[in-house]
């Protein structure tokens, strides 16, 4: 039996990643001060940098080790959640300030550029271009994540808690929830994110759901599941070629303030009902209820 054990362990070890990849990562890291990161944070932040809304909370919960302070110029990053056909489903323009704060602006996919809706553009690259023109802001980088992967991500954190003001029923997305708190995983999470029928404010409510869901993920992050989440996210996220995400992740050195806002358009709000005004949405906290 010992020979069999030897072979089995050797087979397991054969699965190892290419050492050249690790070598390259080490070389990159060397150019900076010793990182002193706690385990997992390097990958964690690298992966999560793309999902900007997740990062700040992650860093907060994992107590990133203090690093040599350095000022980094403000950068804009466009984050796209895509559907199964590579069309933009969720669009967030995030501004990472010099002081480490993050402003996340959600854009409705119903916005039109040259009489085409953002959700109808064929590739992420075209969405990037359209958003740049629409907002007059140049996106330094962009990251694309498949919405479908949020099901897996919700599972990695053991379910995401959200709260609904009223019952929801949408046969198209499969969303069928009673009012109140829910802990969502897998398909349920996707249905929640995808519901579009019977929403009083149409796409704006969908965006509110995305924001509530991300806040829900942030609330569930612990040191224990951060690594699992990072791995899940890193498999799902694609970033533009010129983006050194590891370096980018270093700008987060402690608790980060994040503010969310929604860029509205009449097309996104079919009922013409005024969206909530006054308190910014970030004040609702992770468990703020959505319509």
């Amino acid at each position: 039996m010992n020979e069999l054990i030897r072979q089995a362990i050797a087979a397991e070890a054969e699965e190892r990643v290419d050492s050249r990849t690790v070598m390259a990562n080490l070389h990159k890291a060397r150019k900076r001060k010793p990182l002193g990161l706690i385990v997992g944070v390097a990958t964690l932040t690298a992966a999560a940098a793309a999902a900007a809304v997740i990062i700040p909370a992650t860093i907060k919960k994992t107590e990133a080790a203090p690093m040599a302070a350095q000022t980094t110029p403000a950068q804009s990053v466009l984050l796209l959640g895509t559907d199964d056909h590579n069309r933009a489903d969720a669009i967030v323009l995030a501004r990472f300030g010099e002081d480490g704060s993050v402003d996340a602006l959600s854009l409705s996919r119903e916005l039109t550029y040259q009489s085409t809706r953002l959700s109808q553009l064929e590739s992420p690259a075209k969405v990037v271009e359209a958003v740049e023109k629409l907002t007059g802001t140049r996106a330094d980088h962009h990251a694309v994540i498949k919405m479908a992967d949020f099901g897996k991500i919700s599972q990695a954190v053991g379910g995401v808690e959200v709260c609904l003001k009223s019952a929801a029923n949408d046969p198209y997305s499969g969303a069928n929830f009673l009012a109140g708190k829910h802990t969502l995983t897998g398909d349920q999470a996707l249905a929640f994110l995808r519901q579009r029928l019977n929403l009083p404010r149409g796409d704006l409510d969908r965006i509110a759901r995305h924001q509530a869901f991300l806040a829900g993920i942030a609330a569930k992050l612990t040191k224990d599941n951060a690594v699992a989440l990072a791995r899940e996210v890193s498999r799902s996220v694609q970033v533009d070629a010129g983006w050194d995400v590891l370096e980018f992740a270093q700008r987060f050195q402690g608790p980060v303030k994040i503010r969310t806002k929604t860029f509205e358009s009449t097309a996104a709000n079919p009922s013409g009902q005024a969206p909530e005004s006054g308190a910014p949405e970030s004040n609702k906290g992770p468990l703020g209820c959505v319509d």
């Binding site: 699965e15 190892r16 990643v17 990849t21 690790v22 990562n25 080490l26 890291a29 010793p34 990182l35 002193g36 990161l37 706690i38 385990v39 997992g40 390097a42 990958t43 690594v227 791995r231």
Partner: peptide
């Protein structure tokens, strides 16, 4: 292998 990579990378940095 991914967890292994994380661990080795971080340990070597330390």
């Amino acid at each position: 292998k991914h967890l292994a990579q994380d661990i080795v990378q971080n340990v070597l940095m330390r």
